[in-house]
Each structure stands twice: as C-alpha cells, then as structure tokens.
Design a protein around this nucleic acid. Structure first.
Lengths: 135, 135
DNA sequence: CGGCATCCTGAGAGATACTG
DNA sequence: CAGTATCTCTCAGGATGCCG
C-alpha cells in the first residue's frame, strides 16, 4: 500500500535524512563549532596552554560541567591535548593540537567575514523590524 | 562587601559575558550557521530560487514550523528574499541575496576544511574510544 | 498553497554536593 | 585542584489543526 499519511512520510524521510546528515562531514563540523563553548574555549587556548581553572576563569560564564564536557569532546576529536602532571595538587594542562590550530585558522576566517558583513546583517534586521513594527 | 558566594560571582560574570557575547559578531554568525537548518536551506537555495513546498521536499526532514521559522530568520537577516506572487493559489519564491551568496561561499570553505580534515577527527575519535573502552 | 497558533515532549544546560 | 554524580528546569523543535 502506498497509503502513507503525511506524518508517516515525513518520518521516513527524516530517518533517511538523519542518516545522510550523520555521515556529512560539513554537518559534523558545524555541529562542533556551532556549540556555544567550543569556539570560546579554542580561542582561549589559541593564546597557549592553560590549566582547567584558568580556562574556567577566562571563559567566565561557563559552568564546571560544560567546561569538562566540552574539553572532553575536544580531546576526543583530537583538537586539544590533556596533560596530567601528578604533583600533589594535581595539575592538568590543556593545549591545542596542530589539528586544533588548523581549525582555529578556519574559524578566524569565519570571524573575518563576520566582522566585515555583520553590520549589513544588523542593518537588514533593523529594516525588517521597522517594516514589521508590531509583530 | 566582597562577600559574594561562588554562585553570585558566577552569575554576575555570566551576565557580563552574555552581554559581550551578544555584541560579538562572530558569535552571532556562528549561532546562525550553526543552526541545523540554516546551512541546509542555504545550500538548497544556492541552486537557484525555490518555492516554499519545493524547499520542504528538498530538505526532506524539516517540519513546516522550522521551515517557516528558519526562512523568516534568513529573510530578516537579509540573506534571502521572499517574493509573493498573488495568483489564485498563492506562490512564494525564496532566493539568496548577494549577501546570502557571499555567506554561502564562506560556508563552502568551511565544508572544504571538513572534507579534508574530518577523517583525522574521526580517527582521533576512534583512537580515543579504544583507549577508553568501557566508559 | 503557504502559513500561523497551540500544545507537548525530550535533550541538554545549570546548580549543588561529593570524591581522588 | 580537577573533576564526577545527580537533580531540576528551560526551551528548541515536532505534531496538530485552523486560516487567507
């Protein structure tokens, strides 16, 4: 039977699309750098290695949970290294890998586009909001 | 008094940081293109103008709500145009603006990095998961 | 056809408290 | 110092149904 409701069809399509998206490299990359803390942490580390608590202070608003979670993710992806020095108060340093620095370069290109064009976007936004005053 | 609890200090810091982030162009851009549907929709539109329902079919898994919502956001930011043809069944076409195409170029650069380096990330991920088998 | 209002659920963000 | 564990709660996003 081709008797599929719109909902059923969409569900099937979504499953197929999800598989496609999971395999899409660009999608994975966007998910990573789109993460609120990833870019901030990497920017902080681009100045050189830092300790756990230093990062927590530098990025200010981050909770310990997200700090740990994000760093773990970055470590897993080979973007940062985690170096444990087993002194009496343990010391843990995080640093960018070459891969991480490479990604940092790309992100900075993105930032350059942002710096050049975001005022145009802001202007468009203002114009739009003026055109659509109430709602 | 400097008698602030850790929570109070963090809250104050977060407020300040939120303000900083809201003003940061790069952050705004990342929030945009990090959105699951934005890049997909823009990729679809890079082939030329499309109608509402066409987009819905091309992007397959998207719900009508997200389709409308995302398109509105892109229109507001001056990245796409929305053209209404008041025929009897209404016809609405969406197309990239020059600004939108410019952004598309940047995103494609990002995609190039992804295509070149995501296998390294996947490898790092595998290695990490092997090193950390149980948990 | 194209779109908005409404309700509802689940993933994920943060606070808190405890451990090596 | 550097986490881990647990709980709560928000809110993005999907389903549904109605309008122009």
């Amino acid at each position: 039977m081709s008797t599929l409701t719109a909902a059923q069809r969409r569900e099937r399509d979504r499953a197929a699309y999800d598989a496609f998206l999971a395999a899409c490299p660009a999608r994975q990359l966007l998910d990573r750098i789109g993460d609120k803390w990833v870019s901030l942490l990497m920017a902080a580390l681009s100045d050189g290695p830092m300790r756990y608590a230093e990062l927590g202070r530098k990025v200010a608003g981050i909770s310990e949970k997200m700090l740990t979670q994000t760093l773990r993710g970055l470590e897993r992806d080979g973007l940062v290294t985690r170096t444990i020095t087993p002194s009496v108060p343990v010391r843990v340093d995080y640093a960018l890998t070459p891969l991480g620095e490479s990604l940092g370069t790309v992100v900075r290109e993105l930032k350059r586009w942002a710096d050049t064009h975001m005022d145009a976007i802001a202007a468009a936004r203002d114009a739009y909001d003026t055109r659509t005053p109430g709602a």
